[in-house]
């Protein structure tokens, strides 16, 4: 994790900031004063349970009896003899790779559409945000079946063209894609954040570009995209972490089974099954820490790469 340190330090222009710090903020006092609430929360509320789960990952803990220390057993089992672990990995990576880019592109495209002068803009924004309000509601299970089951809306529409579609949501070849669609459908949060980012781009830059006769495409690639990179970076990192940790969609739609045939077995859903379904909290904790490792590696690379493509207007 030391790599974040490098990135943050570099992007902060240490010389300048350091000077400010030394002259005006009297050392570290102000920094830690502002950091205090978070630090207290972190040390008092977050760190303890996290360390406890790290310890539990080296134990056999069935929730109902005291944990028994078993060393690396859980990790060894994961690496050697757990077919379901491999299945969950595959499903999760596929979900991350498919859902994140589509969701971000969709969110960006609509944020841009909504950033321009169309009548009824607040109305459309609200309408497009509505699905995201549903979140992880239990109602989604039924709604998604209405769309993607054998006799759902999609097949009714295909039927008009004489196509007899499968039961998308319960066919292992397609079920994961219906969850990807769900994720893309709930694109509201990144859209709002993109919108905020777009609004921060000074209009005079576009006016100047228009004066120079630059095409729309050129303006997009030369002005919009570069200035939006901090927000794109944020959305990318957050959405990817969220996708790795995705739980609720499959928990609700597959009723916690991850089926059919493990085709929607998200990593965290598997972890949940192990913890609360089969009383193996020790193993579940080990699974969780392996996920942390995977996400941390991904995040580190993202922050390293950020140096080359994220432009902070500092």
């Amino acid at each position: 994790m030391a790599t974040y340190a490098a990135e943050v330090a570099v992007s902060k222009r240490p010389a300048k900031a350091g000077r400010i710090g030394r002259f005006f903020f009297a050392g570290n006092g102000a920094g830690y004063m502002f950091l205090a609430p978070w630090l207290i929360g972190f040390l008092g509320l977050t760190l303890g349970p996290a360390l406890a789960s790290l310890y539990l990952s080296f134990t056999d803990y069935d929730l109902l009896q005291a944990p028994k220390f078993v060393g690396m057993d859980n990790y060894v089992r994961m690496a050697t003899g757990d077919a379901k672990f491999a299945a969950a990995m595959k499903v999760t990576f596929l979900y991350v790779i498919l859902s994140v880019p589509f969701k971000l592109m969709f969110a960006l495209a609509l944020a841009m559409a909504f950033n321009r002068g169309i009548k009824g803009l607040p109305f459309y924004r609200a309408v497009f945000y509505l699905p995201s309000l549903l979140g992880g509601s239990v109602a989604i299970a039924v709604l998604w079946r209405q769309l993607f089951a054998a006799d759902g809306l999609i097949n009714s529409i295909l039927g008009v063209f004489g196509i007899d579609g499968p039961s998308w949501i319960s066919n292992p070849n397609y079920s994961l894609y219906t969850l990807v669609v769900l994720s893309v459908w709930q694109f509201g949060s990144p859209m709002i954040i993109f919108l905020a980012g777009l609004r921060q781009i000074p209009q005079d830059m576009y006016e100047a570009a228009n004066m120079d006769g630059a095409s729309k495409a050129r303006q997009f690639f030369r002005i919009t995209l570069p200035l939006l990179t901090p927000v794109i970076f944020f959305n990318f990192v957050i959405q990817t972490i969220d996708a790795f940790k995705a739980f609720t969609p499959s928990f609700i739609i597959s009723a916690g089974t991850g089926g059919p045939i493990n085709s929607t077995l998200f990593y965290t859903l598997y972890l949940y099954q192990e913890a609360f379904g089969f009383f193996r909290m020790g193993y579940a904790s080990a699974l969780a820490w392996v996920l942390v490792l995977i996400i941390a590696v991904f995040t580190t690379f993202s922050f390293l790469s950020a140096r080359y493509w994220v432009h902070y207007d500092e």
């Binding site: 994790m1 030391a2 974040y4 340190a5 490098a6 943050v8 330090a9 950091l35 978070w38 630090l39 972190f42 977050t46 303890g48 349970p49 996290a50 406890a52 789960s53 539990l56 929730l63 957050i238 972490i241 940790k245 739980f247 965290t268 972890l271 949940y272 913890a275 609360f276 909290m281 579940a284 904790s285 969780a288 820490w289 996920l291 942390v292 996400i295 941390a296 995040t299």
Partner: peptide, 21 residues
């Protein structure tokens, strides 16, 4: 930078395993 990294780290742990502690 150390605290920033730890702060981001808290985003990564699935809450199901910290639930009981």
């Amino acid at each position: 930078s150390f605290w920033f990294a730890l702060m981001l780290g808290t985003l990564m742990l699935p809450y199901h395993v910290t639930l009981i502690p």
